[in-house]
Amino acid sequence: MSMATDNKVQIEVSNNHTTTENNTTQKRVVYDTKNLNLWYSENHALKDINLEMKENEVTAIIGPSGCGKSTYIKTLNRMVELVPGVSTTGSIAYKGNNILDKAMNVEDLRTRVGMVFQKPNPFPKSIYENVAYGPKIHGIKKKALLDDIVEKSLRGAAIWDEVKDRLNENAYGLSGGQQQRICIARCLAIEPDVILMDEPTSALDPISTLKIEELIKELKQKYTIIIVTHNMQQAARISDRTVFMLNGEVVEFSETDQLFSNPKDKRTEDYITGRFG
């Protein structure tokens, strides 16, 4: 319990610290990936990835199916290890610490780096219990504190007004878009620094998608967001920088405006103009 609160204090302090810094100096690098290679057994899925992701930015990763974008984002919180037979070389520094190091505590990493999945995956519990799950597993038991966190997180995910009167109802009664915002709220409840989103709108209708996109733009004031998307327009609308991946390699990584208006690589141009993928 004391550990969890200590962490929170630290995170808040570092957040404040950097927001003041932002006005004057450059944004800090949150993730620094160097020469990352990843294999699923024999299959070489990621090849020599080198990327720097900065804080309070939205970085979008685009590319055709099977290009390794989901694999890469799952490597950033080591969820990729749930697949048997995965091996990696190279390094990913998260705020200076190599997360691929065996000594890295994955549970600790995942409380600092939240994740929102492709398919809305709330637990078969009440809305309240869904959002309170994270704080509870990290040792917060006081009802009043949990109530606060739940409200703050639901407000943060722009769904408080829709669910405040039915917090004790099962989250499965909500629409797909609402469920996905519950999942975002659940993720905010552990006060992460980074939110990883793996195609968060691919299972949603256009209106729900729009709501989530607006939410992402708001969230980047406080969080660093890395989003995998199949939808190039979405990447263009919401991201500051875009990574284009193809066959496990990073083809191009630059400011979103530049990547879409003036791509340097022929393959990027072919992809964004719809010639393949």
Partner: peptide
Amino acid sequence: HLSEASYGMGATKWQTIRRI
């Protein structure tokens, strides 16, 4: 996808088994 959500929030294996 239920256990993934739990691991994704930093739950240990036992917490995920016990609660989800």
